[in-house]
Amino acid sequence: MMRCKFIGIMALALVAATGSARAADRLVVGFSQIGSESGWRAAETKVAKMEAEKRGIELKISDAQQKEENQIKAVRSFIAQGVDAIFIAPVVATGWEAVLKEAKDAKIPVILLDRGIDVKDEGLYLTVVRSDAVYEGQVAGEWLAKAATGACNIVELQGTVGASVAIDRKKGFEKIVSETPRLKIVRTQSGDFTRAKGKEVMESFIKAENGGKTICAMYAHNDDMAIGGIQAIKAAGLKPGKDILVVSIDGVPDIFKAMADGEANASVELTPDMAGPAFDALLAFKANGTVPPKWIKTTTRLYQPDTAKAEYERRKDLY
């Protein structure tokens, strides 16, 4: 955190020192953000601001409050202002053709963050920066395959039924489980990505599996459900992290706290830094026309209790 602030201040100082002549050459990027529905989303916006400052880019953020029509309006206004590039974190996958064509006609490159869209002509956008949710599930599975010695009955807390992230995180995890005969998913249910539902579902899993004695690990599609599940494990008189291994995905600050307390074992981070790689691709494109790949995958890292305390401190102000 301190380092980021320091770099930010340095960047500011640099901009101030080089004076107003450079200010005219500064890249201006318009960013249509979905909203601030979760801590992760808020962190994504904060990191985007920090990364822009670091590179001396002027970032104009427009909050769409979960509405596609607001995003389309914002993109049109960015085009009218003649920005150098437009970033969109699309709230839905469809309905983007017309407005993206307008941006293309105005020769403004568009980069998608965090989510993809359905368009016939992929040339309408420069690239999409997002994580690989299948791989995230796979990393969680690989960790568990190593951590669990001997046969292991797993219970799975799924995300909202039908959500693409939930489908992909399940797919990646199942791939590893099917390759490892020792592992077996005995129960799987949706916890709607929330703490309250995660707790309720885990409670019933414990009842259904002989008071939790036959459960060796809990895999949750996001950290919030895992935190609810941890509470359910504790209420049943078992030790989360020891009696039942806990692995989840996202890397929100509270799971690092749980890991530091020894109640969770691993979390796969979904990085909120989507804008950083997008800025790099944009700068390369502007400098010498380097066309980035159509999908820039963000790095997926697994965190364990050894670094939990430091990671919590680093993140707690971001989210």
Binding site: S38, T194, R195, A196, D224, I227, Q231
Partner: peptide, 14 residues
């Protein structure tokens, strides 16, 4: 009850 249960207030989902 719900807030005490998860030891947190989740304005979006509670």
């Amino acid at each position: 009850v719900l807030t005490a249960d998860i030891k947190g207030a989740d304005a979006n989902n509670a």
